[in-house]
């Protein structure tokens, strides 16, 4: 059976991790490669790198980082942030990323999803959907609504989250990375209502993100919604919880997880050609 995935997310700026694990096991707490490998050894199923570099000039730095990661990481990884066009996708994928995620650019120009899906295959197109609950007068049918935000959660759009998820799937997205802006950074738990609404609306995998704070939050994401993966950042970086802890907790409660953690480093530190 397909396992539920646990995905640590690393924020990267100018090719360096800005919010990551910081402890004696690592020689360099800012090195994306070292951090990713450490998480892989811990049993992470995948890694997401979120590039928060603002400037266009820094793209080359990001691509060199992606190449270095691809050279030594033997689990899949996704690169998001600043992927704006088909050429950005191509560059990131050619550098060795398995998937690339797109948010703002896809909202502005949804055709980017279909163009990329046709060119590279749906499997590597992740649509990052940042959603925030709409407050105020309840809609006539009484159902809760969420609005799509872009620009790192700063800019509201007119798009309804459920409608946008459906459209992204129809355009050829292979996966949705669903972040609750309301929950992000709060550690009070994933937005289960939102996650359920989106997983019910589409037939592509959904990664739940935003709000993980306890072991039970991961369990709830899988037991109470149809999410395929759960992502967390600071929870893992701060070492509040470890990936093996989460996986053991889930396994004990009957959630299917990949149980054989990587214990051994296969590649030496230097694999340059």
């Amino acid at each position: 059976m397909l396992a539920k995935r646990i995905i640590p997310c690393l924020d990267v700026k100018n090719g360096r991790v800005v919010k990551g694990i910081n402890f004696v096991g690592l020689r360099d707490a800012g090195d994306p490669l070292e951090q990713a490998r450490w998480y892989a050894e811990q049993g992470a199923d995948e890694i997401v790198f979120l590039d928060i570099t603002a400037s266009v000039e820094a793209r080359g730095t990001l691509l060199r980082m992606v190449e270095r990661v691809a050279d030594t990481l033997f689990i899949p990884f996704t690169v998001g942030g600043g992927v704006r066009c088909v050429d950005d996708f191509r560059a990131v994928l050619r550098a060795g990323a398995d998937k690339a995620s797109v948010n703002t650019a896809a909202v502005a120009n949804p055709k980017i999803i279909s163009e990329c899906a046709e060119t590279f295959g749906a499997q590597c197109i992740v649509v990052a959907l940042d959603a925030k609950a709409v407050h105020g007068a309840p809609p006539s049918n009484g159902e809760k609504k969420w609005r799509v935000y872009t620009h790192g959660g700063r800019k509201p759009t007119e798009l309804d989250a459920i409608e946008w998820a459906r459209q992204a799937e129809a355009l050829g997205a292979g996966e949705i990375l669903l972040t609750s802006i309301d929950r992000d950074g709060t550690q009070v738990g994933y937005d289960l209502e939102l996650t359920r609404a989106i997983t019910d609306a589409v037939n592509i995998p959904v990664i739940a993100s935003g709000g993980a704070g306890t072991l039970a939050h991961f369990y709830d994401a899988f037991a109470k919604t149809n999410a395929d993966a759960a992502l967390a950042a600071s929870l893992f970086h701060d070492r509040t919880l470890s990936v093996p802890q989460v996986k053991n907790y889930l396994a004990e409660r009957g959630v299917r997880v990949r149980w054989r953690f990587e214990r051994k480093r296969f590649a030496s530190g230097d694999t340059s050609e």
């Binding site: 059976m1 396992a3 995935r5 199923d45 749906a122 499997q123 292979g174 037939n203 395929d228």
Partner: peptide, 14 residues
């Protein structure tokens, strides 16, 4: 088949 599950199948399977 559509009933198999979400498509694509993405992730770790046995």
């Amino acid at each position: 088949p559509r009933a198999a599950g979400k498509l694509p199948q993405i992730g770790w399977n046995q």
